[in-house]
């Protein structure tokens, strides 16, 4: 009877620590989606359609692109196009390091990987801000 009572006692509630992974997973997912949809289109346009002359190269001239990038709608699009795939890539690299069994300095790996993605995102953001002509 006694033994039974002790075995049916509730286990002490475990301490659960929430992971911050959702932020990085979200950026990873969004970046992956963009890359998956846009890379084939970009390859098609720049690698096939333009060289074959099916699209006039004038449409992607420096002046046209500069104008687009410095417009209020072009700047955020370019920021998203650069930053999200970057977060995607560095998240993948961070997890691949774990898959390769590199256990040492996981927190430093994290700081370097996501730090790099963050730094480049900020850099692109400021660059675009300077180019902006309203």
């Amino acid at each position: 009877m006694n033994a039974q009572q002790t075995t049916t006692n509730q286990l002490p509630e475990k301490k659960y620590i929430r992971s911050h992974e959702p932020i990085f997973w979200g950026l990873f997912g969004a970046g992956g989606m963009l890359t998956a949809f846009l890379t084939p289109v970009m390859v098609l346009v720049t690698g096939l359609l333009i060289p074959l002359g099916l699209i006039d190269a004038e449409h992607l001239s420096y002046e046209k692109l500069h104008q687009f990038v410095s417009s209020w709608y072009g700047a955020p699009i370019v920021l998203v196009l650069v930053a999200l795939p970057l977060w995607h890539t560095l998240h993948r690299i961070f997890h691949s390091l774990h898959d390769l069994g590199i256990k040492r300095g996981r927190d430093w790996q994290q700081v370097i990987c996501y730090g790099f993605a963050f730094a480049v995102s900020v850099f692109v953001f400021t660059l675009l801000l300077q180019m902006l002509s309203l």
């Binding site: 659960y16 620590i17 929430r18 992971s19 898959d99």
Partner: peptide, 14 residues
Amino acid sequence: MKIVNQEEGVWSCT
């Protein structure tokens, strides 16, 4: 969800 939200919950899965 407390179990799920941990690193050793779903977030160890790649």
